[in-house]
Each structure stands twice: as structure tokens, then as C-alpha cells.
């Protein structure tokens, strides 16, 4: 009985998929662009070593130094930096670091946030009140500030790959655990009043099993929307950290924020090629994940659902009409 009522979560619930079909061309274009950019980013990250002409910390090729601040040329399509790195290579390798920070930040935020939200919402009581208070306190603090403090703690501001990633991931987690917590907790308090939970309790199912099998599975449907924001925020925080000079050192990994920090002086003297490629890489990556999340949010928000007519009667007929506009 209870088994029948537990809906299996999928990445795109049926309702959402149906709405995607009725959504306007703008929404479809947004979703498509977002998906495309995200796939492109992941591929670049995975195939980085094959795509990049040189290594991220390579300064010379065949015994000859690349040279500092070289204009774009055949050997260096996007020129070289002031330290003598190949800009294109570093930009491509940077995707890998960005993907790593996304995965680390997601893992550190989703798991604790969900588990705490579940426990808080289902068990209630004093624990619930304490956790809600904590979540409220951490809710609005800028993650970048915590990231800076964390980077000093973890690696003394001197950054290895693990140190820099760890600092950024931890601080993004501090900002996002409360968000997952709130969403999951709100859903859990709603779901736990449903009849199938009572049914499970009546037939003697244990608390843990009810929590993780019955309640949790029905409370995580809105989470993919937060994933995308979380991912964007992780990239932006790591880049901000790098830009302030507390990020990852150039010979541990390539990081876009650090490269932008190095390019500030170049910009002042009018050189464009050291600043624009890493900056554009950040913009396109965040744009991809954000568009993806945005279009999913749109499809889930009833207020934004496309409506054709102005009167309620026209709306009823226009809902199907919107489906075939291409």
C-alpha cells in the first residue's frame, strides 16, 4: 500500500516535462543554450589535456621560453601572460578546476543540508528549533568573506590545489547547507503529514526507514533547482578568492580567478588577451548552469507558466494552443 504511493523521483518530473512542451520558444531556447553550454564545459574539463596546446604550468616548449605578454600568434592563439604562460592552455585547464570545485561544493552542501533538514523536519522538537536558528544566522552572510577566512585557516592563504578548493568548497557549503536545509525541512514537514507516512508507521516501519525511504524520496524534488545555483556560486566564490590572491597557486592548477588577478596590470596598460579569455570562461560556465536552473525554475513556477489569453476562458483554450508554435 505504502509502496504504491511513494513516487520515484526523476531528474525531470512528468509534470515538468509536460510543461516544457507547452513552454514558449524563449524558455526552450534558454533551456537548450544552458544545456549546451554546460555540456561544452564538462567536455572541456574532461578532455582538457587533449584540447590544450600546452600544460597549465608550462613556460617553455623545446627549450625555448614562451616569453612574457606575447601577442596572440600561431603558436599562442591567445598570447601569453605576464608570467609567460600560454593563455589558451590555462583557460582550457581552468575548466577542470571549476568542475572540481562544483563537485566538492555540491557534495559538501547537499549531503549535510539534506540530512539535517530531514532530521529537523521529521523529528522536530528542540533540535529543530536550534537548527532553524543556526540556519537563519548563516543564511545571508556573504560566502566570499567566509571563503577568505577559511582559505587562511586551511592553507595559510598559501594555496595548493586541495587547500584552495577546500576553502572555497567549505565556505560555499556554509552558505548553502542552510538553503538545502530550509527547502528540505519545509518539504519534510509537509510530507510527514501525508497518509502514506501514517500507513507506514501503523504497519510498524522503523523511524529511520520511514525518514529515508518514505519521506526523503518525496522531499527532494525541488533540489535540482538549487544544485545549479550552488554550482554557479561555487565557481564565482573560487574565482573571487583567486582574484583577491587567496586562491590556487599557478603551478598547482589553473584557476580563472587567479589569472584575472594577474591581468589587472595588463588591463591598465591596454592588453586585452590575458583578462578576457579566463573572464569569458567564467561567464559562459556560470551562464550555462544558471540558464539551466532558470528554465527549470520557470517551468516549475505556476505564476510564470505561459498563458495565451487575457480572460480565464481564453486561458483554458490557449494552454494547448501554446504547444504547437513551431
Amino acid at each position: 500500500m505504502a509502496q504504491l504511493l511513494v513516487r520515484r523521483p526523476t531528474l525531470l518530473p512528468d509534470r515538468l516535462r509536460a510543461r516544457l512542451r507547452t513552454g514558449g520558444p524563449v524558455q526552450r531556447a534558454m533551456l537548450l543554450t544552458g544545456a549546451l553550454l554546460t555540456v561544452l564545459f564538462v567536455l572541456t574539463a574532461l578532455l582538457g589535456p587533449l584540447l590544450a596546446p600546452y600544460g597549465y604550468a608550462q613556460l617553455q616548449d623545446g627549450g625555448r621560453l614562451f616569453g612574457s605578454q606575447q601577442h596572440p600568434s600561431g603558436a599562442h592563439p591567445l598570447g601569453t601572460t605576464i608570467a609567460g604562460y600560454d593563455v589558451l592552455s590555462r583557460t582550457v585547464w581552468g575548466a577542470r578546476t571549476a568542475l572540481e570545485i562544483i563537485l566538492a561544493a555540491l557534495l559538501l552542501s547537499v549531503v549535510p543540508g539534506t540530512v539535517l533538514g530531514l532530521a529537523s523536519g521529521y523529528l522536530g522538537g528542540r533540535l529543530d528549533r536550534l537548527l532553524v536558528g543556526l540556519a537563519d544566522a548563516l543564511y545571508a552572510f556573504p560566502p566570499l568573506l567566509l571563503a577568505i577566512v577559511m582559505s587562511i585557516v586551511i592553507s595559510g592563504g598559501q594555496s595548493s590545489l586541495v587547500g584552495g578548493l577546500g576553502a572555497a568548497a567549505c565556505s560555499v557549503a556554509v552558505a548553502f547547507v542552510p538553503q538545502y536545509f530550509r527547502v528540505v525541512r519545509a518539504e519534510v514537514t509537509r510530507v510527514k503529514a501525508e497518509p502514506f507516512v501514517d500507513a507506514a508507521r501503523v504497519i510498524g516501519t522503523g523511524t529511520w526507514r520511514i525518514m529515508f525511504r518514505h519521506v526523503l524520496r518525496n522531499s527532494v524534488r525541488t533540489l535540482p533547482l538549487i544544485f545549479t545555483i550552488n554550482a554557479s556560486e561555487a565557481i564565482l566564490t573560487l574565482a573571487g578568492l583567486g582574484f583577491l590572491g587567496f586562491g590556487i597557486e599557478p603551478n598547482s592548477a589553473s584557476e580563472w580567478g587567479y589569472d584575472l588577478n594577474r591581468s589587472v596590470a595588463d588591463v591598465t596598460s591596454g592588453l586585452w588577451w590575458t583578462a578576457i579569455p579566463p573572464g569569458l570562461a567564467i561567464v559562459l560556465t556560470v551562464l550555462g548552469t544558471t540558464l539551466l536552473g532558470e528554465s527549470l525554475t520557470d517551468l516549475a513556477d505556476p505564476r510564470l507558466r505561459r498563458r495565451g489569453g487575457t480572460s480565464t476562458k481564453a486561458t483554458a483554450t490557449a494552454t494547448d494552443g501554446g504547444a504547437d508554435d513551431d
Binding site: 574565482a239 551562464l287 540558464l291
Partner: peptide, 10 residues
């Protein structure tokens, strides 16, 4: 979306 995706320092 672009204003959000662009880091303020870039």
C-alpha cells in the same frame, strides 16, 4: 542572467 554570471571584478 549575464549580470549574475559575470563576476563583478571581470
Amino acid at each position: 542572467v549575464l549580470t549574475y554570471a559575470t563576476p563583478v571584478f571581470f
